[in-house]
Write a protein that binds this DNA or RNA. Structure first.
Lengths: 248, 248
DNA sequence: CGGTTACATTGATCTTTATCAAGGCAGGCC
DNA sequence: GGCCTGCCTTGATAAAGATCAATGTAACCG
């Protein structure tokens, strides 16, 4: 996937622009093709933000805190675009969950050149917003949810992003280990395991081997996830709070 | 701040473009001016993402989970641009910390029109990335940090964003209550209070009344925040992990 | 196909933070 | 300026999840 021209094809497919243009040539000049095998990690430029285009495979992006603690900040799958910050409060590293291929760009230079194409800027902006909204939901999970809710929500989220393989309906094949799930949910591996066992005992899910999980009852799983209830979540606000409801 | 023309001036100042253009006119047509008094909340269109331009004041953006739980996802101050998602897993509401004024836009329509200006798109993209990076750091704090670390990190972050008032150096006047701090850090009000007391007893900070905090020793506060240590945080990775260090 | 190894599960105990319950104090208002 | 209200602090107890430790098992490999 790192032969010359591959990057231009990928840019073209991602943004819906012709691949033969001067712009795609200029952009692909900035690319560093990287392959990451399962378990390998990639560190990007610590002095500036990078942009990653994952052409195939699956990766995790984790942040490192003091005392060797890791927090997985996002999982990415083939076709995803994501950004890696310069080293600030936490260092970020990309790790392969399976063998993966990606292109790395210096973010600033990429934006400088891409500014010429409204279509590219629009796509980048929308993907960035999606990442932000996902990250906010993660913050809610980490800050306010029980272990049960986090695990149930995680399974639902993965069911949306991973396509159910082969025959078995409602079955997802998790590409990450229990440790990864824990590091994503702010839980220990043991707690994740216990929660999965309990969901299994409740008949809501089932496991097939180590990495396959069958979701029997999506509704019940959603109920376990503790997300906002349809309409009445405003209770709990300060009583004096007024509400100005905007509908645009 | 909601007289006609105010929006165009704000757009012009924010993006560094002339205010008399057709584009600023078209964009300002989409604006809904809103004032939020202290403690009041604003809900945006639940069916589509909104874009908010905070012209003055200070607000919090919180997400609502089941059982009346609130997680503050971000604080915003005058000049900030931020986006509010359509109602997904969690509902989001804006609440005034002080009396505030903002313009609300339907995000999609705003992007459609702003696409004509690379400068606007670039600014929106960079602000979105900053918000994402902040949110990721928050996720690390919520998922992997102790109460002490979260409170120390919070004070440091606020010291950067709030400008130290009047005379007292290293003094910040928090515009939010202890409850808000707790809802931002995934802690109870009591735990926040205890941590502040302990930091005070350690001589690292001091309090002046209810909302002023004097930061005596930024270095020691940073040490308490448990962010990544300069160079050796890779220990703790799987031993087989290889590293491909990219420097661009 | 059986042995090996890393990953996952299960169990017992401990720690951190939430929860419950009083006080204390700051700041607003007459 | 003193009262009053709401916010903050402090203390005692409980619960959720972490940690420590051992066992089980899937998947890889010869």
């Amino acid at each position: 996937m790192s032969r010359p021209g591959a990057c231009r094809l990928f840019l073209s497919a991602t943004f819906g622009i012709p691949s033969g243009t001067e712009l795609t040539r200029q952009l692909s000049e900035l690319a560093t093709p990287v392959t990451v095998m399962r378990g390998e990690t990639v560190e990007t430029d610590p002095t500036a933000a990078s942009l990653a285009f994952l052409t195939g495979g699956a990766t995790k992006l984790s942040a490192l805190a003091a005392r060797g603690r890791h927090q997985i900040v996002a999982f990415h799958f083939g076709g995803d675009i994501f950004s890696i910050p310069a080293e600030g409060l936490h260092r970020h590293v990309i790790t392969g969950l399976r063998d993966s291929a990606l292109f790395l760009f210096p973010a600033r230079a990429f934006y400088d050149r891409a500014a010429a194409s409204p279509r590219i800027m629009r796509t980048l902006l929308e993907r960035s917003q999606t990442a932000l909204f996902r990250c906010r939901d993660k913050a809610v999970n980490l800050g306010r949810k029980t272990a049960r809710e986090r695990v149930a929500g995680f399974l639902l989220g993965m069911a949306e992003r991973l396509d159910c393989p082969d025959d078995e309906p409602g079955c997802i094949k998790l590409p990450m280990s229990r440790r990864d799930v824990g590091e994503s949910l702010g839980l220990t591996i043991e707690t994740v395991s216990r929660q999965i066992t309990e969901l299994k005992e409740a008949g809501i899910i089932d496991t097939r081997g180590r990495s396959c999980i069958v979701l029997h009852d999506l509704d019940q799983l959603a109920a376990q996830a503790g997300n906002v209830e349809p309409r009445d979540a405003m209770s709990g606000l300060a009583p004096a709070a007024q509400r100005v409801v905007m509908v645009q």
